[in-house]
Amino acid sequence: MKQWQVVVHDDAVNFYAVVVDVLNRVGGLSYDNAIEAAKRIQETGMVAISSTSQHAAELTAVRLRGYGLDATIAWSKS
């Protein structure tokens, strides 16, 4: 089945701690993985936090975007 990624992008607005909090509480990442993901967003400009069905990816993106994070959905090539 085709896999889809939720991609969280760097921005000029969100604070690091808030991104960690939202990725952890809302995005389903463990605390340590949320910290690592936030670091990677800073370093590379974006991070894919899940690879799943399109429906599940959209629901995750909806939740993250509800907090002001720049979360998009992309087809996973891997």
């Binding site: 760097d10 921005d11 607005v13 969100n14 604070f15 690091y16 701690a17 960690v20 910290i35």
Partner: peptide, 8 residues
Amino acid sequence: LPTGEILE
């Protein structure tokens, strides 16, 4: 939570 700056 880690303190920090704006994400970028």
